[in-house]
Protein backbone atom coordinates (compact mmCIF):
# COMPACT_ATOMS: atom_id res chain seq x y z
CA UNK A 1 0.00 0.00 0.00
CA UNK A 2 1.52 3.38 -0.98
CA UNK A 3 2.18 5.85 1.82
CA UNK A 4 0.51 8.67 -0.11
CA UNK A 5 -2.76 6.77 -0.36
CA UNK A 6 -2.66 5.71 3.29
CA UNK A 7 -1.78 9.21 4.53
CA UNK A 8 -4.48 10.78 2.36
CA UNK A 9 -7.06 8.27 3.60
CA UNK A 10 -6.08 8.93 7.24
CA UNK A 11 -6.43 12.70 6.70
CA UNK A 12 -9.93 12.26 5.25
CA UNK A 13 -11.02 10.03 8.15
CA UNK A 14 -9.57 12.39 10.77
CA UNK A 15 -11.37 15.40 9.27
CA UNK A 16 -14.70 13.58 8.84
CA UNK A 17 -14.62 12.11 12.35
CA UNK A 18 -13.14 15.24 13.94
CA UNK A 19 -10.45 13.10 15.60
CA UNK A 20 -6.81 14.17 15.09
CA UNK A 21 -5.35 11.16 16.86
CA UNK A 22 -7.20 8.51 14.83
CA UNK A 23 -4.93 5.72 13.58
CA UNK A 24 -6.17 3.42 10.82
CA UNK A 25 -5.11 -0.14 10.11
CA UNK A 26 -6.21 -2.35 7.23
CA UNK A 27 -8.54 -4.24 9.57
CA UNK A 28 -10.22 -1.15 11.07
CA UNK A 29 -14.03 -1.37 10.80
CA UNK A 30 -16.82 1.15 11.41
CA UNK A 31 -17.84 -0.64 14.63
CA UNK A 32 -14.43 0.06 16.21
CA UNK A 33 -14.37 3.80 15.56
CA UNK A 34 -16.56 6.16 17.57
CA UNK A 35 -18.74 8.38 15.37
CA UNK A 36 -18.27 6.32 12.19
CA UNK A 37 -21.96 5.79 11.42
CA UNK A 38 -23.75 5.38 8.10
CA UNK A 39 -23.91 9.15 7.53
CA UNK A 40 -20.22 9.74 8.26
CA UNK A 41 -19.43 6.75 6.04
CA UNK A 42 -21.11 8.39 3.05
CA UNK A 43 -19.46 11.77 3.80
CA UNK A 44 -16.07 9.97 3.94
CA UNK A 45 -16.80 8.36 0.57
CA UNK A 46 -17.61 11.78 -0.95
CA UNK A 47 -14.38 13.27 0.47
CA UNK A 48 -12.32 10.30 -0.82
CA UNK A 49 -13.87 10.60 -4.29
CA UNK A 50 -12.93 14.28 -4.36
CA UNK A 51 -9.40 13.82 -2.96
CA UNK A 52 -8.36 10.86 -5.10
CA UNK A 53 -10.43 11.84 -8.19
CA UNK A 54 -12.20 8.47 -8.34
CA UNK A 55 -15.84 7.40 -8.58
CA UNK A 56 -17.42 4.42 -6.83
CA UNK A 57 -20.62 2.56 -7.68
CA UNK A 58 -23.36 2.10 -5.08
CA UNK A 59 -22.64 -1.64 -4.89
CA UNK A 60 -18.91 -1.06 -4.29
CA UNK A 61 -19.64 1.34 -1.41
CA UNK A 62 -22.12 -1.00 0.25
CA UNK A 63 -19.85 -4.05 0.01
CA UNK A 64 -16.91 -2.40 1.88
CA UNK A 65 -16.06 -4.27 5.09
CA UNK A 66 -12.98 -2.46 6.43
CA UNK A 67 -10.41 0.26 5.71
CA UNK A 68 -8.09 -2.21 3.93
CA UNK A 69 -10.82 -3.03 1.39
CA UNK A 70 -11.51 0.69 0.95
CA UNK A 71 -7.83 1.41 0.24
CA UNK A 72 -7.65 -1.52 -2.21
CA UNK A 73 -10.75 -0.23 -4.01
CA UNK A 74 -9.23 3.27 -4.36
CA UNK A 75 -6.00 1.78 -5.72
CA UNK A 76 -7.91 -0.35 -8.25
CA UNK A 77 -9.67 2.79 -9.51
CA UNK A 78 -6.41 4.72 -9.84
CA UNK A 79 -4.74 2.17 -12.12
Amino acid sequence: MSDNLWNGLTTVFREALDNDSLTLTEGTTAKEVEGWDSITHVLIVVAVEKKFRVKFTAGEIQRLQNVGEFAALIRSKQV
Binding site: S38, A58, Q62
Partner: peptide
Protein backbone atom coordinates in the same frame (compact mmCIF):
# COMPACT_ATOMS: atom_id res chain seq x y z
CA UNK B 1 -35.29 1.01 5.87
CA UNK B 2 -31.66 1.97 6.55
CA UNK B 3 -30.16 -0.85 4.44
CA UNK B 4 -32.61 -0.98 1.52
CA UNK B 5 -33.93 2.57 1.16
CA UNK B 6 -31.99 5.22 3.08
CA UNK B 7 -28.39 4.17 2.35
CA UNK B 8 -28.89 3.37 -1.37
CA UNK B 9 -30.69 6.71 -1.76
CA UNK B 10 -28.03 8.62 0.19
CA UNK B 11 -25.24 7.00 -1.83
CA UNK B 12 -26.91 8.12 -5.05
CA UNK B 13 -27.31 11.73 -3.89
CA UNK B 14 -24.08 11.82 -1.85
CA UNK B 15 -22.70 14.66 -3.91
CA UNK B 16 -25.21 16.95 -2.11
CA UNK B 17 -23.29 16.39 1.16
CA UNK B 18 -25.27 17.17 4.33
CA UNK B 19 -28.26 18.42 2.30
CA UNK B 20 -28.33 14.95 0.72
CA UNK B 21 -28.32 13.37 4.18
Amino acid sequence: LRDYLYLPLLIRIRILGKSGV
